[in-house]
C-alpha cells in the first residue's frame, strides 16, 4: 500500500509532503497502518470537503492511498472537517513522515475521481495506471 501525504498551513506554516510505502515498513507498523486505513473507512470518504479560509492557522491535508489492488482514493481536508475516525490515521501519517520511513515527493498524484487541481504528471508513480 502506498500512501501519499501532504500537510500545509498550521500555526507554523510548515509544509510536509512525503510518501510512505507499507512494503518497507516493519511488519507491525504496516499492519497498524492498514488497520487505521480500514477504521477510517478511507476509500469511502468523500474526496473533498470545503476548506474554510476563515479559519486562521488550521492545517490542510491531502492524502492519496493506493492499495495496489482495487482501491486508489484521494481526499482533501481542513482541520475542522476531519472526522474523529480519520484523525488517528492523519496523526500516524504525520509521525511516520517525520521518521526515516517518509520519502520526499514533489506532489500528490491524481486520485480516482479526476478534477484534481493539484495534479502533476511528474508526480505520478512510475508504474502503469490501474485498470478500472
Amino acid at each position: 500500500m502506498e500512501i501519499y501525504f501532504k500537510r500545509t498551513g498550521g500555526f507554523m506554516g510548515r509544509s510536509i509532503m512525503r510518501m510512505v510505502d507499507t512494503a518497507v515498513l516493519p511488519h507491525e507498523k504496516a499492519t497498524a497502518l492498514r488497520t487505521l486505513v480500514t477504521q477510517a473507512d478511507f476509500f469511502e470518504l468523500p474526496s473533498e470537503t470545503a476548506v474554510s479560509s476563515s479559519i486562521a492557522d488550521q492545517f490542510e491535508y491531502t492524502v492519496l492511498i493506493d492499495d495496489g489492488k482495487t482501491h486508489r482514493h484521494r481526499i482533501k481536508r481542513g482541520d475542522s472537517t476531519i472526522p474523529s475516525t480519520l484523525w488517528p490515521l492523519m496523526r500516524e501519517l504525520t509521525t511516520l513522515t517525520h521518521s526515516e520511513y517518509g520519502r520526499a515527493i514533489d506532489d500528490i498524484p491524481i486520485g480516482d475521481g479526476g478534477g484534481d487541481d493539484n495534479f502533476s504528471p511528474a508526480a505520478v508513480p512510475h508504474r502503469p495506471p490501474l485498470q478500472p
Partner: peptide
C-alpha cells in the same frame, strides 16, 4: 483538542 495535535488555530 484531539490527541497529538501540534497546532493552534482561531476558527472565527
Amino acid at each position: 483538542y484531539r490527541v497529538g495535535y501540534d497546532n493552534a488555530f482561531w476558527n472565527g
